[in-house]
Simulated assay, not measured.
Amino acid sequence: MKLFSKTITMLEQGLDYASLREKVIANNIANVDTPNYKAKEVRFKTELDRALTSLKAKRTNPKHFEFQHDATGNFFVATRNDVVYNHNGNNVDIDKEMSDLAENQIYYNALIEQLNGKFNTLKTVIKGGK
Rank of each mutant, 00 (worst) to 15 (best):
L11T: 04
N86D: 07
T46P: 01
F65C: 08
E103N: 11
T7M: 12
A26W: 05
T121H: 13
V77C: 13
D33E: 15
K2Q: 11
I94V: 15
A110G: 11
S54E: 14
M1K: 13
K58A: 10
Y17S: 04
S5E: 06
H87T: 09
Y107T: 01
H64Y: 09
G14P: 00
T121P: 00
N116G: 05
M10A: 12
D16C: 05
E113R: 15
I94L: 15
T72L: 10
T121F: 15
N61A: 11
T79W: 01
V77N: 12
L11M: 14
N90A: 03
E22I: 06
P62M: 10
K63A: 15
Q13Y: 11
A102W: 08
A51P: 01
R59M: 09
K118A: 15
H87P: 00
T46N: 09
N86L: 02
V84D: 01
K23R: 14
A18V: 03
I126S: 09
T60W: 01
L52M: 14
N74S: 12
A78L: 06
E97Y: 02
K38C: 04
K38S: 03
Y85R: 03
D93H: 08
S19N: 15
L48P: 04
Y37D: 03
Y107N: 10
N91C: 06
K58S: 06
R50T: 03
A110E: 01
K23S: 10
A78W: 03
N90D: 02
F119C: 07
H69E: 14
I94M: 15
L15E: 00
K6H: 04
Y107G: 01
L101F: 12
E113S: 12
D93I: 13
G89I: 02
V77P: 06
K130I: 13
G129S: 14
E41F: 14
A30H: 07
E41M: 13
T72G: 09
L115V: 05
K96M: 14
N120F: 12
F67Q: 12
G128I: 15
V24D: 00
A57V: 09
K45T: 09
R80V: 12
E113H: 13
A102E: 08
E22A: 15
M98Q: 13
Y107I: 03
K63I: 07
G73F: 05
I8L: 12
I106V: 15
L101Q: 11
P35L: 10
V125C: 07
G89K: 02
V32A: 07
A39H: 01
E97I: 04
K130P: 03
V42D: 01
E47R: 02
V42L: 11
N28C: 07
R50E: 04
A51C: 05
A30I: 06
F76N: 09
A30L: 11
K127W: 07
I112A: 12
V42S: 02
T46W: 08
K130C: 07
